[in-house]
Design a binder for these strands. Sequence first.
DNA 1: ATGAAAGCGCTAACAG
DNA 2: CTGTTAGCGCTTTCAT
Lengths: 350, 350
Amino acid sequence: MNMQADDRRPRRSRKKNGGVTLSDIAKLAGVSAITASRALNTPEQVSEETLARIRAAVERTGYVPNLLAGGLASNRSRLVAAVVPSLATPVFLEAIEALTATLVTYGYQLMLGQSGYNNSREDALIDAIIGRRPDGIVLTGILHSEQGRKRLHASGIPVVETWDLTPTPIDMLVGFSHQGVGEAAADFLSSKGRRRLATISGDDERAQRRRKAFGRRVLQHGLTEEGGAEAPDVVVSTPTTVGGGRQALARLLDIHPDVDAVFCSSDWLALGVLIEAQARGLSIPARLAVMGFGDHAFAADLHPALTSMRIDGTRIGQTAARLIIARAEGRPVAEPVCDIGFSIIERDSA
Amino acid sequence: MNMQADDRRPRRSRKKNGGVTLSDIAKLAGVSAITASRALNTPEQVSEETLARIRAAVERTGYVPNLLAGGLASNRSRLVAAVVPSLATPVFLEAIEALTATLVTYGYQLMLGQSGYNNSREDALIDAIIGRRPDGIVLTGILHSEQGRKRLHASGIPVVETWDLTPTPIDMLVGFSHQGVGEAAADFLSSKGRRRLATISGDDERAQRRRKAFGRRVLQHGLTEEGGAEAPDVVVSTPTTVGGGRQALARLLDIHPDVDAVFCSSDWLALGVLIEAQARGLSIPARLAVMGFGDHAFAADLHPALTSMRIDGTRIGQTAARLIIARAEGRPVAEPVCDIGFSIIERDSA
DNA sequence: ATGAAAGCGCTAACAG
DNA sequence: CTGTTAGCGCTTTCAT
């Protein structure tokens, strides 16, 4: 009957962090841990007095709740992941800024991942993201990898795809039609009396979809150079640059000297076109109409001011945030697919 | 002697997630949980056979480790937080992109926070970040709030401040001297024979520091308009824009018509100056030398090509990532303060 | 309004 | 090379 009950203590306590924990707060306030937890998360469930003591303890110790632990216990991380091809593309930035801003308002944080324009890293990135158990994932553009789409779906995490419309969304969707953009640009330029329409565009999939739709519409209008079978185009590599735009215009004029309107797949390209035209003494819009895409802040301030296609990135970001938060909080989402459209901002260059 | 030992089960099992866990993998592979854990994290500690079985199980189930749980248990979140005033400022972007890219290489993820240029949200943001227990925090610019600095310090999380040098860093530092930039700009322009130097700058604290250093240096060189006591300047609100640059040049020429060189606190402002000058028929650089800051990608492609002050954002991002990872992995950091300097990229505009 | 107990899914520490 | 045990810090569930 030899009993050594006291010897059941752990052999050595695990490396303690030294940090203040919720139980420290609870002890200081003379309550249980769960009461302290409630005081912080659902204060209306706690009496005034207790609340005051707990708050004092928090204040005094500089306690900051461990959200890793909280997320693990509650299965809600209050983390939202966003994936962009690249931050350098200003059109995405606006959406990301709005997303972050809206999320913090509701107590969520943003995790950022870059997929690159080549889809090699996508799968690894998706796994890294799922591993954090975010309450939602915002995708910029469509996820290319079938494997990635499957895993996302299997994870059960709410997903918002943006910047595009697809007939088969993984989950939710906030975007616009790239085909529509291409067609609208062709219609606009032809309505301005232009007869030799061309495009300069990046080689990413969405820009190409705009380009093709533009080209088809041009054919429908019967507007091609000397009855050719296609609208002239120059394709540059994404991400697009001002220098790329300059060179592209040079090449375009080389091959098709009588082009009288260009639709560019980004405002950067359009700026390059403006600069190259100016360097060559080509008058804009008299000799050449120029139209950009994205309506970057600088578009209005150029000389001549740049006509561009506006996508409301802020609205995309806000809508995506709201959809995800609604899902995370268990509210029903009435409209999981949202076409936010686009608009032509007419200025001097076209 | 009535014993109902089996009744000690929990009254109801906690809402299970349905997700695959490490123990599921372990069971499938016929090993213990810790062995499965080792197979994923330190495979060299596990035999080939076991490894194969565990990997098969992972493959079959689509298991993705829960990093929240892992982080909580190991006290290493593999998360790094970055705070920027705004994403719209392209100079920060380069650093953020490099930071993200370097971090993923080592299996870390980035959490992004925007502080805004006004320092109101800083404290809340800092708490939200600390709550995630990141392995490191990268600050863009100096944290204004004394409270925030204290809490960061108390948290014990490695901190890298960037884009600035300060005599009293919280922890580590990767930056350059804004005073040095202002002085170098003044020296450069005066070495080009310019005699009426002016600045156009944003109203944030760092731009103002560059402006003041520039102004002092101008005085030292004895280069002011008609013996005035100060270098002419126009201050615009941050974030700076092309339109702001245009208006600022207009105002500047109104008051000081004989200015022959302008140092702008961003390439956006410089672009605005170029455009306004062109709109007014002012020849650049003959009549007016223009110098930007940041050396944005478009600077080289303008016409005339823009002379600018280059800060190596990529290097800042990479260095910050390395410092943090070194700390996170317990390696000693030899040089916690790193001045990455700046360089003048001379092109046509000055 | 407050509390006790039982985990969330993982890894550190020790032991073989 | 593999396993046992005890947590990490929090919240859920059930009870009072």
